[in-house]
Amino acid sequence: MGNFFGSMPGAIAQGFIWGIMAIGVYITFRILDIADLTVDGTVCTGAAVCAVLVTSGVNVWLAILIATLAGVLAGCITWFFHVILGIPAILAGILTQLMLWSLNLKIMSGANVAVSSRTFKVLLTQINVPMALVFLAITAAVIIAVLYLFFGTEIGCAIRATGCNGAMSRAQGINTDVMKLIGLALSNGIVALAGSILCQYQGFSDINMGKGAIVTGLASVIIGEAVIKHISKNFAVKLAGVFIGSIIYWIVYQTVVFFKVDTDLLKMLSALLVAVFLGIPYLKKKIGGKKKKGGAVNG
């Protein structure tokens, strides 16, 4: 059993990193009300850009910054497809994701790039998990704090209003197109940031590393919401809940691995989990009829 508990810090570190990614998913899915599939490609873009830059001698902080900006750009492309060309959001995300697949291969000049922590100066590595955990906890705290402040500003409120009710937002003078741009860019920037951190932690970037990221992210968001539901409605707590959800997800993953359950099944389980949790509110509404939940028109 010692080995099992020994693997937990690593699982928590993975949870933190993918939690950053899930925060990006939270911004589009919960705040903007767009299911943005770009992220499956953006994770790898962030990792690829970071890996290539670090291995060619660029300062790691600068590499992370450029990787993040690459993610921002990916978000802008999806926005262009969706808002300017009028392509449904889901398809717009898939199109960008597919573009990124080719782009990621070009960036890495292949399917993967190794970033050895022995050769290159990186911020964290799975060889030193405790240090990595300190770095990740601080990073998570900073992200929560910055986003908490941002979504309390006029721009942040306008983005929230846009996701909640577009017609109302335009009637209140909000340029909803611009707000969607900011939201998608911010979201994908954060996802790419997560990718750049992940490639340092695991010591390589790989073309497959973002596969199913949207589902993993949604699962984290949903698990987190279930955990913090009764604690607080504060926005910062909600963001922290995403990290908690992600860490729980990875602890479960690690447990499944330890007990030698077929890990091939894990993505199916994640997908089913997301389907069930997204389906329950709908079914409740359908069966419960007009019970509560903003449905009261009269009085």
Binding site: F150, G152, T153, E154, I155, G156, C157, A158, R160, A161, S169, Q172, G173, I174
Partner: peptide, 20 residues
Amino acid sequence: EENLALASRRGKRKTFAPGI
């Protein structure tokens, strides 16, 4: 209050100033 704050900023350029 956030809804009212949005309305009170109608036509104003949105900035990083507090939403309310």
